[in-house]
Design a protein around this nucleic acid. Structure first.
Lengths: 350, 350
DNA sequence: CGCCGTTAGGAGAACGTTATCACATTCCCC
DNA sequence: GGGGAATGTGATAACGTTCTCCTAACGGCG
């Protein structure tokens, strides 16, 4: 590997001069500058970023920790982060923690040793001791999608409450009163948040939540697939379900299809997180669209402000609004007749 | 940031001794070892990987260049790579080149400066001069999904020919004789490969390829959406189309839905690349499943062998087999009657 | 008692860059 | 023509590790 020393030698100058010419600082006469540049080109010189990091104390590298990059939601978030930081010359180290504290810890240790300039993380839960340690060591952290209870770091999240509320209001407007939730792990921020939003929205709508209408899944496809059966076996089964994330929605829809349950006639479905393929389903899926890419981009911007020192105040929280994309999986706008054929504890006018 | 120097001081030993104790090499008495370890813990010492890289000439970091991590196929590939290398202690720098040579070049330059230990790339095309430069500088490269014509580097690809052939044979078996291709950019390896496979398979099946039956898209959803119209406006339109990647399949299906074209009665569809959501479509989508994650994992393994020096022979090529997942978007197994109502140039027995 | 092998630990060079300081020139102005 | 600023360049010290040499103490053995 050719070093600046080789370049200097070939240009007939000292290392210091070569560095000035290449680094574009200090005095250099145009003539020597040219000579150095020519030599560098001739030798195909590429400065060693490791050595530079050593000296500058900055690596121009950011780390991103998500649970799984193969989940389209996180893939988009990562993409958004990258878009935001590429222009400023930062590269991204991608870490998939799989909601596994051990794996997350492993990655955080590596991240710390690599002296990354900053970190965007969608924390899996846990006490966050390692994150606190990272912060103490001076590495700025931005949380995305999820946040830890008492971690004094910036955060970019989506307004889960508003999203779930919009979905439930939509269902209610269409005449649904028996609405179930296929939720996520309570261990995770998004799982908890969406569950509480569901409970609050149901309360607001003065709708009862019967036993078995709230299920706790794993945010994975298999769990959506497995749990739908429980809804179907219920004596008083919900006429509509809200599924708390994209993967579980796939599983749930598959299970409903296998069971021959018609959507929305026998079961209305609204998914959290809109996907490319939502419109091509039959019926097209009504979904709570999360601005995943913007989420990432915002996180990237906040992080950059910290990294460059442009901002050094107290932790900030950015809340992005989701958007209910109404398609056809909850029924037509007019309230379906069947919704009123059964006696509910409260009539429509109550 | 605490350094090994601080640890040594606190333990009352020299830097050399501290290094031996922490690095687990050379002689150290159990007692001093304990003292050093305790000091390191007390000071929350995390070795500086930058400095270590400097000395060792290895960064324990790999780079991955794909066109777009937000495309589920590449997201899975990346995931596969990560799975393969995490165990060996390597981190991954993710680069989205967007098929943009300038962006790719930008990243390759950064990668080179960062002295990454190896590179997995899904090359966008172009002359590959930069890649050759990287190789010349001693960085092992593995190509994945796509490959450059004359680049002497390992490659892991899918058997595109076999995949397309299986799809077309399947269609033929179901009675289709007018089969179109919604292809990808000829500029890209996969685009070319799948086009040629289509042509070869049609020739083998002794089926004609009429004007307008072969379209060149961009591998993006919008292009699938836009181009389907061309098929539909054709006087002699195909009864079946093969769509050359996942994103274009979504666009195509959406356009067909909007146009009210029934699948498979009016148009059979088989997509390249199976997706999670393929089974929940109506009808469920028949697709050529690519082992995306395995593709990545294999690339990771090959790269690791190069990086560690376990293998140093001539460039290898791993070809993974795709699998046709038959669902219902091409019609039932029994040849549909309508397929024979029109006169073809060649009868079924010819 | 001297020699040698073993055990333990320290000094210091190296990795490749950046950046500070010092040292020359040259030039200008009073 | 001399002092001082402006201009150009070189020497060299960092940055934090790793690792090769050295040195020293000690015990065993001839």
């Amino acid at each position: 590997m050719t070093t600046i020393r080789d370049v200097a030698r070939r240009a007939g100058v000292s290392v210091a001069t070569a560095a000035r010419a290449l680094g574009d600082y200090g005095y250099t006469s145009p003539r020597t500058r040219q000579r150095v540049l020519r030599a560098a080109r001739a030798l195909d010189y590429h400065p060693n970023a490791i050595a530079r990091s050593m000296i500058k104390g900055r690596t121009q590298t950011l780390a991103v920790v998500v649970s799984d990059n193969a989940n389209p939601f996180f893939a988009s978030v990562v993409r958004g982060i990258e878009d935001a930081v590429l222009g400023q010359g930062y590269a991204i180290i991608l870490c998939n923690a799989d909601e596994d504290p051990a794996k997350e810890a492993l990655y955080l240790r590596a991240i710390r040793q690599k002296r990354v300039d900053g970190l965007v993380i969608s924390p899996s839960g846990g006490p966050g001791g390692l994150l606190r340690g990272l912060m103490a060591s001076g590495i700025p952290i931005v949380q995305v999608d999820r946040r830890l209870a008492r971690l004094p770091a910036d955060a970019v999240v989506v307004d889960n409450r508003a999203g779930v509320r919009a979905a439930i209001e939509h269902l209610v407007r269409l005449g649904h009163r028996r609405i179930g939730l296929l939720g996520g792990p309570r261990r995770l921020y998004t799982g908890r948040e969406r569950l509480q939003a569901y409970l609050a929205a149901m309360r607001e709508a003065r709708l009862p939540v019967a036993d078995g209408w709230v299920l706790e899944g794993t945010f994975k496809e298999a769990s959506g697939h497995a749990l739908v059966g429980r809804f179907l076996r219920l004596r008083r089964r919900p006429t509509a379900i809200v599924v708390a994330n994209n993967l579980m929605t796939i599983g749930a829809l598959l299970a409903l299809k296998e069971a021959g349950v018609r959507i929305p006639e026998e079961m209305a479905v609204v998914g959290f997180d809109d996907m490319d393929w939502a419109p091509i389903l039959t019926p097209p899926l009504t979904a709570i669209a999360q601005p995943a890419r913007d989420l990432g981009a915002a996180a990237g911007v906040l992080l950059l402000e910290r990294v460059t020192g442009a901002f050094a105040g107290r932790p900030r929280t950015v809340v992005l609004q989701p958007r209910l994309v109404v398609r056809e999986s909850c029924g037509t706008r007019a309230a379906p007749s069947w919704a009123y054929t059964e006696q509910e504890s409260r009539g429509p006018t109550a």
